[in-house]
Design a protein around this nucleic acid. Sequence first.
DNA 1: CCTTGACCTTGACGTAACGTCAACCTTTAC
DNA 2: GTAAAGGTTGACGTTACGTCAAGGTCAAGG
Lengths: 255, 255
Amino acid sequence: MEWSIQEIAKIAGTTSRTLRHYDDIGLLKPSRTGHNGYRYYSQSALVQLQRILLLRQLGLGLPVIAQVLDREQEAAVALNGHLGWLEQEQNRLARQIASVRRTIKAVEGGENLMAEEILDGFDHTHYKDEVEERWGKDAYAKGDAWWRGMGPDEKLAWKQRAQKLGSDWIAAAEAGISPDSATAQELAKRHVEWLKDIPGTPAAANGENGVGIKEYVTGLGDMYVADPRFGANYGGTAGAIFVRDSLRTYAELNL
Amino acid sequence: MEWSIQEIAKIAGTTSRTLRHYDDIGLLKPSRTGHNGYRYYSQSALVQLQRILLLRQLGLGLPVIAQVLDREQEAAVALNGHLGWLEQEQNRLARQIASVRRTIKAVEGGENLMAEEILDGFDHTHYKDEVEERWGKDAYAKGDAWWRGMGPDEKLAWKQRAQKLGSDWIAAAEAGISPDSATAQELAKRHVEWLKDIPGTPAAANGENGVGIKEYVTGLGDMYVADPRFGANYGGTAGAIFVRDSLRTYAELNL
DNA sequence: CCTTGACCTTGACGTAACGTCAACCTTTAC
DNA sequence: GTAAAGGTTGACGTTACGTCAAGGTCAAGG
């Protein structure tokens, strides 16, 4: 028994284009090729195709499928690995759904879709750059979920706390005191405590997950200097440098 | 306040490439362009960017985001629509995970990854072609989950039932009787009952979800004729035609 | 023999949202 | 003056095919 490309496509429940693709990438060659170039497939090719489609439906990629069929990899191993990925995806989706639900509620409740206020108190803790990536990919997501899970009054309180911290820093910097001074170190302590209240950050995890709160804090300090947004929040670049040095000293001594 | 492309990228937690992309597709233009072609972004552009990134993190596509930002669409509406899609995805993932788990069990239990036996009794009920697509996209998935959820003995029983049905059809066709005859109609009835035992099909749903079991059965009859695999199962094309006509008559009278 | 229609071929572009060079120009800093 | 850092515009790669486009092959009918 032998079938043309359209015929097995129908039999197996796929398309001729897919068959040609599998031929191109070497995943499934036709069992015979006519003098005219036509592809013909036998029973054994059909069985292989069924296996391919089964694995594909389970979500495996074509390269992985090729490995499994070539016995370069055990099916159970590949499937187990894939299962982990699927479960991660499910988690991600669940969190995303929760986020969307909260956002819908907020928007329907009249809140403006992320108004300017957020820029003042929140986003500079939300700094998704190389430092954050170094300290965990989902830190941003967690922090974001936390922020949007808060009520308006909570947000206001948080914002004011952040602004008070910022203005205190500015005052200290302009007073010309040293980063080693008790006043500056007291501010640094407040700053770190404040950071600890943001879920998803190494500061909040308190070093439990292996990332260093010390490096995190000093890294943040570097960012404050490197980025003009922080400069604005802490009284210009000079202020940011003061904050950075104060934090660094504090981290060295206390973290 | 005004920032270069790298600067807002850092501030907002994204990359300069992304910003250039958004410029290219018109999603976010820089607020000013230098004589040298450099892109510069203002505070308002930053706010827009934050909104974009928020919506993107919620999983919305860039075109949808553009609509929301242009106020061509309410945010709540877009988010609600998106929520539906997310929930569908979650369902799909859950089923896929279940399927993978069962398959792992089966494979570890020593079962061969979809051996030839399946081709005999099962796969022709599994016909994922234009008819199946007409009757629901997840019919295939449901049927597949059902099949792989069965134990070896159940599979054997099913296979034998299918083969008995096939051989009875062949015998009737070769006897030269009419599709209207009582014998043929009795076989058609058995055939339909058999179809009803396959979850995910219109026959199993019994017309509850709005798709017609009648059209489904006659459509299957047409497939039996159109495809050589069925011919093999029902005693050649002549046999398949007999089956088709018998089913059609039965469907007209009883469904 | 010729036409028509169905089926086959290879080749190439499009998909979503950028990452990643490549080649080249501008600004900044020492 | 020069090197480092950062800017620009292409253009290709990513996944698994869908979808033309242009043209060759085959069976059936007039």
